[in-house]
């Protein structure tokens, strides 16, 4: 079976239009002007990953404050929305520091969700 996918390379502003074709175990890439394009297309075809960032409410001394959070590393792209749902379930109170772990190993990705901005009273 042959799978064909198209990507726009993000490595530089030229933005080559890449066509990746997978046949059996082999992936071939066309449209690239440099090596980075090949690596990018293969990664996007086999294991695309993104860092997820959002912000959550923290109840804090009678009202709430917003705290920004991220996945400490990139997670599989198709886990973004499910992970976002997990983050939205958080019910947080009190004070937090930058780097505090809010969810460990979110949805078995091996990645923690951490605070990127502190919240104080």
């Amino acid at each position: 079976m042959t799978i064909r996918q198209e990507f726009i390379c993000i490595a530089c502003p030229i933005g080559c239009s890449l066509i990746a074709t997978k046949e059996g175990g082999n992936i071939s890439v066309a449209g690239n002007r440099c090596r980075i394009g090949i690596q990018y297309a293969i990664k996007e075809m086999t294991d695309p990953r993104r860092v997820l960032t959002t912000s959550v409410r923290v109840y804090n001394g009678g009202n709430y404050k917003m705290m920004s959070v991220k996945t400490a590393e990139d997670i599989p792209k198709d886990k973004m929305l499910p992970c976002l749902k997990e983050i939205k379930k958080l019910d947080l109170q009190g004070c937090y520091n930058v780097g505090d772990i809010l969810i460990e190993d979110v949805l078995c990705t091996g990645v923690n969700v951490v605070a990127t901005r502190g919240v104080v009273l």
């Binding site: 860092v51 960032t53 959002t54 912000s55 920004s68 991220k70 930058v98 990127t116 901005r117």
Partner: peptide, 18 residues
């Protein structure tokens, strides 16, 4: 709150608040 800051100054990819 997105990431993409600091690769040159801090040599790591940070969010704006970080």
């Amino acid at each position: 709150i997105h990431n993409g800051f600091g690769l040159h100054v801090f040599k790591e990819e940070l969010t704006g608040p970080e």
